[in-house]
């Protein structure tokens, strides 16, 4: 049994943190796990993706078309990594675009969200979440990644209980931020919407 998850977004949105927490949750859930991440240049506002593989796996990299889930904190960044999905992959994306600077300066265009969602929906099972909105309501836009983990937990892709993921999140944040993160996670779990 293998579970492969791709997490994508924009540098600074907490994608690496989310992948790390997911990995720790797997260890807590007594599941074998390997994760990969990007550091350095990619952090400065660039496109970022991490992978988390669990179960009977030898390494962290996900082969094309084999992801069980792709979760993204930004819509275009979900589509950018579409090579990892197949018809059964659950794609969960935040609906709030972060327009890259190449649009303002380089004359490039940010596609319409309808077009992005239609394209993803034609290739995989698409779910959307207003992660930024939920995060703000929970108490801080910085918890957008935690909202996405909540949404991921609601997809039933994970080989361990959602409770273990939530406990792991709370283990890894300072006392004063526990309530905010719990709200964000639960908000994400409840908000998962099939497109």
């Amino acid at each position: 049994m293998k579970t492969s998850i791709v997490l994508s977004g924009v540098g600074g949105q907490g994608v690496i943190t989310a992948a790390n927490i997911l990995g720790k949750a797997a260890v807590n859930g007594k599941v074998n796990v390997h994760t990969s991440e990007v550091h350095g240049m990619a952090q400065r506002g660039g496109s970022v993706y991490c992978t988390v593989r669990m179960g009977d796996v030898s390494g962290p990299l996900v082969a094309s078309g084999t992801a069980d889930a792709l979760i993204s904190t930004e819509p275009v960044e979900a589509l950018r990594y579409i090579q990892f999905v197949n018809k059964k992959t659950k794609v969960v994306t935040d609906i709030n675009p972060v327009v890259p600077f190449t649009v303002a300066v380089g004359g490039e265009a940010y596609p319409s969200l309808d077009e992005v969602f239609k394209e993803i929906g034609s290739r995989a099972i698409l779910y959307t979440v207003d992660a930024l909105g939920i995060a703000k309501k929970a108490g801080g836009s910085i918890t957008r990644n935690i909202v996405m983990l909540g949404a991921l937990a609601a997809t039933d892709v994970l080989p361990f209980d959602a409770d273990i993921l939530l406990e792991t999140i709370l283990e890894n944040v300072p006392e004063k931020f526990k309530a905010v993160n719990k709200n964000a996670f639960n908000g994400g779990m409840q908000a998962l919407t099939r497109r």
Partner: peptide, 20 residues
Amino acid sequence: PLVVPAATTVKLPRRPPALC
């Protein structure tokens, strides 16, 4: 067994790293 899905035809804006 690996099937590489066709690249998307939706034109995506590049997102290179930039000075903050």
